[in-house]
C-alpha cells in the first residue's frame, strides 16, 4: 500500500512538471499572464528553424528568441493566433508548423495509414481467395478398394 502511494505520488509529481520553456530572460515575458499564455501556446506549435526539432518556445537559438519577441509584439497588438501563425508561415513555409497541415506535399504523410490499411486489406483478400481456390481445386484422392469396403461395412452396421 505504501509503495502504491509512493508511486502515485511520484506520478502526480511527474505530471505536474510544467513543460520546459527556454525563456531564460524574464524580461521576454509579457506582464499580462493571459497574453503570455497565448504567446506560449502559439510559439510551442512553431518549429525552431535553427535546431529544427525544438519549438520556438523551447529553443534558446537567437532566431527563436527573435520570433518569440515578434509573437509577443503581435499578441499585444491584438492580432489573432491565426494571423500570427500565417505571418510565420508566409516567411518560413509550413515547415515552421510542428504539426504539418494537409497539403499536396503532405498527402503521402497523412495518407500513409490509409494506404497501409488498404494494402493490408488487399493482401488479406488475395490470400483468402487463393486459399479458397486451392481448397476447391485440391480434390481428395479417390478411396482405395480397401477403404471403400470398410466404408460400406461401416454404413451397413
Amino acid at each position: 500500500m505504501k509503495r502504491l502511494r509512493l508511486a502515485a505520488g511520484l506520478l502526480t509529481l511527474l505530471l505536474q512538471v510544467a513543460p520546459a520553456f527556454a525563456v531564460s530572460d524574464p524580461s521576454e515575458l509579457l506582464s499580462n499572464p493571459a497574453m503570455e499564455a497565448r504567446a506560449e501556446a502559439i510559439g510551442s506549435h512553431l518549429r525552431c528553424l535553427v535546431c529544427q526539432n525544438e519549438s520556438i518556445e523551447a529553443s534558446d537559438a537567437g532566431l527563436a528568441r527573435d520570433i518569440r519577441a515578434i509573437i509577443r509584439q503581435q499578441v499585444v497588438a491584438g492580432r489573432t493566433d491565426k494571423q500570427i501563425t500565417a505571418y510565420m508561415v508566409q516567411r518560413y513555409g509550413s515547415f515552421i508548423l510542428l504539426e504539418p497541415p494537409f497539403e499536396p506535399l503532405t498527402v503521402l504523410l497523412w495518407g500513409s495509414p490509409v494506404i497501409a490499411l488498404l494494402l493490408g486489406a488487399m493482401i488479406a483478400l488475395l490470400a483468402f481467395r487463393r486459399q479458397r481456390r486451392e481448397a476447391a481445386t485440391i480434390a481428395p484422392a479417390p478411396l482405395s478398394p480397401a477403404e471403400k469396403a470398410r466404408l460400406e461395412a461401416l454404413l451397413r452396421s
Binding site: L49, V50, G62, L63, D66, I67, I70, R91, Y92, G93
Partner: peptide
C-alpha cells in the same frame, strides 16, 4: 542589427 529584415526574407542562418 536587430535581424528583423532577415526574418521578413525567411533567413534562418
Amino acid at each position: 542589427q536587430p535581424g528583423r529584415v532577415a526574418i521578413d526574407w525567411g533567413v534562418y542562418g
